[in-house]
């Protein structure tokens, strides 16, 4: 039972904070209730409100496996500085690698006078025939590359119909879209945000540049997180509410 660190686990009204309830659930999941702060254990023992909070959260996570979570930030915390954070380790490693690299460079320089010859770039040196064993880049077959470029270009070609629709829909004053901007480059995780006088629920439809529906989302909120990945290309999106088209926008998927 730990008696330190308990101050962050209670709200002003005396009940557990979300952190406190979460820590208790961690303890239940990891079989480490005995390591909870004494104040937390004693409070939950007698408080049905907090028992309900802990039980409700545990109930949602009861069937989840808590593997590969790494050291627990509370139960595995060292009383001394917790741990050297990876970025610091990386910096140390980088310094060591740089030192070795400089050493190797200094050692090899006298044997490779051509490197220091004026007019010879490092790129030229790298592609010189004496670099035996180094992987060399093979240029792709021109036809395949051209095909690939064409296919890629086709995915970014504008749709005249949807462009017209988009321009006309912008005249609608009832819906204001804050994000994404027209033609914005987005990726998975992009946030669509709007305000509209239309009554929810809204339907957000994502179409490719050939007017094919790729995704349809329904939401009562005025924000939507694009949680799916899509192939790179030009996409249009429609916002519908109360059966009406509220907005048409376009995005470039990276």
């Amino acid at each position: 039972m730990k008696n330190e660190h308990s101050e962050g686990f209670f709200r002003p009204d005396g009940h557990l904070t979300e952190d406190g309830a979460a820590l208790y659930v961690d303890a239940l999941k990891l079989d480490r209730t005995g390591e909870l702060p004494g104040t937390v254990l004693e409070h939950v023992k007698t408080c049905e409100t907090c028992k309900a909070e802990v039980t409700g959260l545990f109930s949602l996570l009861a069937d989840e496996v808590y593997a590969a979570t790494g050291p627990h930030p509370f139960f595995d915390a060292n009383p001394h500085p917790r741990r050297v954070t990876p970025p610091v380790l990386y910096r140390i490693a980088a310094v060591i690698v740089a030192a070795i690299g400089i050493g190797v460079l200094l050692y090899t320089l006298p044997h490779r006078p051509e490197v220091s010859q004026p007019g010879k770039s490092s790129v030229a040196t790298r592609s010189a025939p004496d670099t035996v064993g180094q992987p060399t880049e093979q240029p792709a077959a021109p036809t395949k590359a051209a095909e690939s470029r064409e296919l890629m270009a086709a995915r970014f070609t504008e749709s005249p119909e949807l462009e017209d629709l988009m321009k006309s829909s912008l005249r609608s004053a009832a819906t204001d879209v804050q994000s994404p901007a027209i033609g914005a480059r987005v990726s998975r995780g992009a946030v669509f945000r709007w305000t509209s006088s239309a009554t929810p629920p809204y339907e957000l439809v994502v179409l490719d540049n050939r007017d094919r529906v790729i995704r349809t989302y329904t939401t009562s909120a005025d924000t939507l997180l694009l949680s799916d990945s899509m192939q790179a290309g030009l996409y249009y999106w429609k916002l519908l509410g109360e059966g009406n088209l509220l907005y048409v926008g376009k995005i470039l998927m990276r």
């Binding site: 962050g8 979300e18 952190d19 406190g20 979460a22 808590y66």
Partner: peptide, 27 residues
């Protein structure tokens, strides 16, 4: 998702890092 996006600044400010974030966000 929408509510979490709205709450992100508060989550960043309030999460004290003593419980697993997965459990915290589940709450």
């Amino acid at each position: 998702n929408a509510r979490l996006l709205e709450k992100l600044p508060r989550i960043r400010a309030q999460y004290n890092g003593l419980s697993l974030f997965r459990t915290y966000i589940s709450s």
